[in-house]
C-alpha cells in the first residue's frame, strides 16, 4: 500500500511540472510585459530596462522558466501588482473561506444525492424515480450563476430569511483563529456568531452543491441498481433479512465504491465552480479574489491562484485514487 502511494506521488511530479509550464506560458501571452504592468504606463525607458533586468526578462525563455521554477520551489509566488502584498500570504488568508464553502457544499450534495439515489434505485420506474431523475438531469444542466440569483431573489429579497452576501454580518464579533469561521465560532463558543456564519453559508453552499448533488444522485442510483441485481442480494433476501438491512448493509456498501470516487472528483470540480458562486455571493475566498484579479488584470494574482487551485485539485485527485484502492479490495495495488 505504501509503495502504491509513493508511486502515485512520483507521478504527481510531472503533472505539477506541467501545470507550472502552462501557467508560465500563459504569462507570456500577457499583452505587454510584466515590467510595464508593474511600473505603469508613465515609466521611463531606463526604469523599464532596470525592471526587466531585475525580473530577468532579458534572459532566454528557458532560463526565465528555470528562475520561475526556482522561486516556486521556495514558495515564492511573487507580489500582487496593485496592492504589493505577497501573493502567498493573500492565498493563505483566503483559502479557508473557499474550503469551508466547498466542504459545506460537498456535505449537502453527498447527503441528499446519496439518499435520492438509493430511494430511486429501490423504487425503480416509480413516480419518485422519474421525478428525482428528471430533477437530477435538470440539476446537471443548471446554470448555477442564474440559480444563485433566483435563490437571492426568493430567500433574501422576498422572504428575507437569509443574508444576501458575505460570510458574517456587520456588528457580529468573531475572533479569527483558523479563518474557518464555523470552526472559529465553535472553538470560542460563540453561539451568536455560529448561527450567523451558518446562515450566511446556506445559500452559497446550496448553490454550489446543485451540480455535484445531481451527479452523485445519478451515480448512486445506477451503482445501486447494478448491485441489487447481484446474486448475493438475492441470497440475503432469501435468508429473510429485512429490506433495510439488505439495502444498507449489503447493497450500499458495495455500491458506494464508485460513488466515493465520484464524490472525490466533484470536490475538485467545485474548486472551479467556486469562482462563480463566490463572485455572486461576495464570498471572500480564492475564487472571488481571482475574479477580481481577472477584472483588474492582476496577472500575478491570477498566476498564484491558478497554481494554488490546480495543485490542490491534483492532490485531491490523488487522495481519491488512494482512497479508491483502500476501500475496494478488488483492486490490486501492486
Amino acid at each position: 500500500m505504501l509503495a502504491y502511494i509513493a508511486r502515485r506521488f512520483l507521478i504527481l511530479i510531472p503533472t505539477l511540472l506541467g501545470v507550472s509550464v502552462i501557467v508560465f506560458l500563459l504569462l507570456q501571452l500577457t499583452p505587454g510585459d510584466p515590467a510595464e504592468l508593474l511600473l505603469g504606463e508613465r515609466a521611463t525607458k531606463a526604469s523599464l530596462e532596470q525592471m526587466r533586468e531585475h525580473l530577468g526578462l532579458n534572459k532566454p525563455i528557458h532560463v526565465q522558466y528555470a528562475m520561475f521554477l526556482k522561486r516556486l520551489m521556495k514558495g515564492d509566488l511573487g507580489e500582487t501588482i496593485w496592492t504589493r502584498q505577497k501573493v502567498w500570504i493573500e492565498v493563505k488568508q483566503r483559502f479557508p473561506a473557499t474550503i469551508e464553502l466547498s466542504v459545506a457544499a460537498l456535505l449537502i450534495s453527498c447527503f441528499f444525492g446519496v439518499i435520492l439515489g438509493i430511494v430511486s434505485a429501490t423504487k425503480q420506474y416509480s413516480l419518485f424515480d422519474y421525478v428525482s431523475m428528471l430533477g437530477a438531469l435538470a440539476g446537471v444542466s443548471m446554470p448555477i450563476f442564474w440559480l444563485a440569483l433566483v435563490f437571492m431573489l426568493i430567500f433574501s429579497l422576498n422572504l428575507g430569511w437569509l443574508p444576501m452576501s458575505g460570510r458574517l454580518s456587520v456588528g457580529v464579533e468573531l475572533e479569527t483563529i483558523t479563518r474557518f469561521y464555523v470552526i472559529d465560532a465553535l472553538i470560542t463558543g460563540n453561539g451568536e456568531a455560529l448561527k450567523d456564519v451558518l446562515w450566511h453559508l446556506i445559500m452559497p453552499a446550496a448553490t454550489l452543491s446543485t451540480i455535484p448533488m445531481a451527479i452523485v444522485a445519478r451515480m448512486t442510483r445506477s451503482a445501486m441498481l447494478e448491485v441489487l441485481r447481484q446474486d448475493y442480494i438475492k441470497t440475503a433476501k432469501a435468508k429473510g433479512l429485512s429490506n433495510m438491512r439488505v439495502i444498507f448493509k449489503h447493497g450500499l456498501r458495495n455500491a458506494l465504491i464508485p460513488v466515493v470516487t465520484t464524490i472525490g472528483l466533484q470536490f475538485g470540480v467545485m474548486l472551479g465552480g467556486a469562482i462563480l458562486t463566490e463572485t455572486i455571493f461576495a464570498w471572500p475566498g480564492v475564487g472571488k479574489w481571482m475574479y477580481d484579479a481577472v477584472m483588474q488584470r492582476d496577472y500575478m494574482v491570477i498566476q498564484g491562484g491558478v497554481l494554488f487551485i490546480a495543485t490542490l485539485f491534483v492532490l485531491i485527485n490523488l487522495c481519491v485514487d488512494v482512497l479508491y484502492a483502500v476501500i475496494n479490495p478488488r483492486i490490486s495495488v501492486r
Partner: peptide, 24 residues
C-alpha cells in the same frame, strides 16, 4: 497523453477563465 493530463489538472472552467483573462 501527458499534455492531456496537464490540461486535465485544471478544474472545470478555471483554465477557460484564465486563458480568456490572458488573451482578453
Amino acid at each position: 497523453m501527458r499534455i492531456m493530463d496537464m490540461i486535465l489538472a485544471f478544474p472545470y472552467l478555471l483554465l477557460a477563465i484564465v486563458v480568456v483573462a490572458y488573451l482578453g
